[in-house]
Amino acid sequence: MTLLVVEGLRVGYGKVEVLHGIDITVGPSEIVALLGSNGAGKTTTLRALSGLEPIRGGGVTLGGTSLVGVPAHRIAAMGLAHVPERRRLFAPLSVEENLKLGGYLMRDKPAELKQRIEIMYGLFPRLAERRLQLAGTLSGGEQQMVAIARALILKPRLLVLDEPSMGLAPLIVRSIFGIVRRLRDEGMAILLVEQNARQTLRIADRAYVLENGDILVQGAASALAQDPRVQAAYLGGVAAA
């Protein structure tokens, strides 16, 4: 049973088409990685899924419901949470206010929201210590934690992560990937965009490699890690050296 089905997705900016009809599926309890170099269209794919970019062609369904033409704030309500590239926290707002905004859609249930925020503090104890601090003053790793916690408040069915490892120390990346894996084990569907292919293929179940707006290769993560084309281009193989 697949949760997210993307078929023939086409997206563009002005006269330039960035995605030329790509197919992706993500199921529950699955980490699916979307790899590719800069400018391949990874971020554009995610922005189209969450409604930030208009879809020009093809279909996207989440649990059987079409997302095409649905405004971003409704898609968030349908259970797709998007942690954007560079985290995009509300820097002048406190950690707690950022988390509250993550629960904006459950604002009429304050007791439940409070409980969800406490669960996030349990998942990221560092944030509990900094709840009143302005988000912009946190370290990069802590900011990424806020971004993920903010996305998890509503218990999304599909979590979409855009380069969560960007600019973070290896140790912190490992702990964030550990959390992603735990969410997968609890049944969440995860679509992960990364440049760091080696580490990503280690935690992903399946992966797609995007190049110039087309899917170049796809398959099980373990198989892709052995694929000579992937090794050459993204894993620092002989050809890339």
């Binding site: 969450s50 409604g51 930030l52 405004p71 971003a72 704030h73 409704r74 968030a76 309500a77 949470a81 998007h82 954007p84 995009r88 926290l89 509300f90 820097a91 002048p92 707002l93 206010e97 509250k100 905004l101 993550g102 904006y104 859609l105 903010r150 996305a151 509503l154």
Partner: peptide, 20 residues
């Protein structure tokens, strides 16, 4: 709070489910 969030980052506010 949504107004303040929107002033900072409109796309991020949309992702929170805020009807901008």
């Amino acid at each position: 709070t949504a107004m303040r969030a929107l002033a900072v980052d409109r796309d991020a506010a949309r992702l929170m489910g805020i009807n901008v």
